[in-house]
């Protein structure tokens, strides 16, 4: 039973990782570059929700929407500072700039929000349902539900709308996209904002699940998002989602069999093993 409960914990935590990784994959797709600021975007989303809860009461729906928008707006700043100005410069300049931006945001948060850990409101007061003897929290169900909602929403948006088609086109081939009349600059900005928004939502879920927000929470979160995306296959959205869940489950089952201090070791060990066997990731195409 303990193992099954750990599995449920893993699925829930994995779903948060999945949403983080999906956002990362969207950004990686349109920008064509990894970013080191993503963890801080997650952190900013989480902090924004902390203050929205204080200002407007414990309304999760409102916090999710407002947190998405806040993180997307931080995404606009990242885009203006790190990408737009260096479009014609070598790519590593943007990359280094995202490292600087990451440090800036972390320090900004420490200064403005304070370095101590802050608590998030609790939802459902620990209520749970018992399914064949396994305890599943309402909170866990809700988190997984929200992640599924956002993932399905994103997929429909990308597959069925004209803007979604533009985003996919820009992710695949910027030159060809320009040649069919797509405004590549604006579309990249939009994709970056959507990715950041999803990261912000994931940050809120993370904060609510662990009941804590910290200016330094972005470091590990960004690393997990990146690992999940690489595990799934660079830039593949389905891959990112699966990668996130796999990492979450591995971590929690790892805890069940060994010590909880080794949580992060399992995830990264898994990543290394998968990349040795399948360098393109679970869902990546060869040569990408």
């Amino acid at each position: 039973m303990y193992i099954l409960e750990q599995l449920v914990n893993g699925l829930c935590q994995g779903s948060i990782y999945a949403l983080m990784a999906i956002g990362y994959a969207v950004i990686y797709g349109v920008v064509g570059l990894v970013t080191f600021t993503y963890g801080e975007i997650i952190m900013m989303g989480s902090f924004s929700a902390f203050y929205y809860f204080i200002a407007f009461g414990d309304n999760l729906l409102f916090a999710l929407v407002a947190g998405f928008i806040t993180a997307a707006l931080v995404g606009v700043i990242v885009h203006k500072v790190c990408y737009q100005r260096f479009l014609d410069a070598p790519r590593y300049i943007s990359l280094i700039c995202t490292i600087g931006m990451s440090m800036f945001l972390k320090n900004f948060a420490t200064l403005v929000f304070g370095s101590e850990m802050k608590g998030m409101p609790t939802f459902f007061e620990g209520k749970f349902i018992s399914l064949a003897g396994i305890r599943i929290n309402y909170l866990q169900l809700m988190i997984m539900g929200i992640v599924i909602l956002f993932s399905v929403g994103l997929t429909v948006f990308l597959k069925k709308t004209r803007i979604g088609m533009k985003l996919r086109a820009v992710s695949q081939d910027k030159k060809a996209a320009a040649l069919v009349g797509i405004n590549v600059k604006n579309t990249t900005l939009l994709g970056n904002c959507i990715g950041c928004g999803l990261g912000g939502v994931a940050g809120i879920l993370l904060g609510v699940y662990y009941n804590s927000v910290l200016p330094t929470m972005g470091g590990m979160a960004g690393l997990k998002a990146f690992s999940a995306m690489v595990l799934g296959g660079l830039g593949s959205i389905t891959g990112a989602a699966v990668g996130g869940v796999v990492i979450g489950v591995t971590e929690n089952l790892g805890i069940a069999f060994a010590s909880s201090g080794l949580r992060d070791v399992f995830a990264f060990a898994l990543l290394v093993v998968v990349l040795i066997v399948r360098p393109q990731g679970l869902f990546g195409k060869k040569g990408n």
């Binding site: 088609m165 996919r168 086109a169 695949q172 081939d173 060809a176 040649l179």
Partner: peptide
């Protein structure tokens, strides 16, 4: 309209 050399079709569309 410009049909480029090397085609540049969208491979995953």
């Amino acid at each position: 309209a410009h049909v480029p050399e090397g085609r540049n079709i969208f491979k995953q569309l």
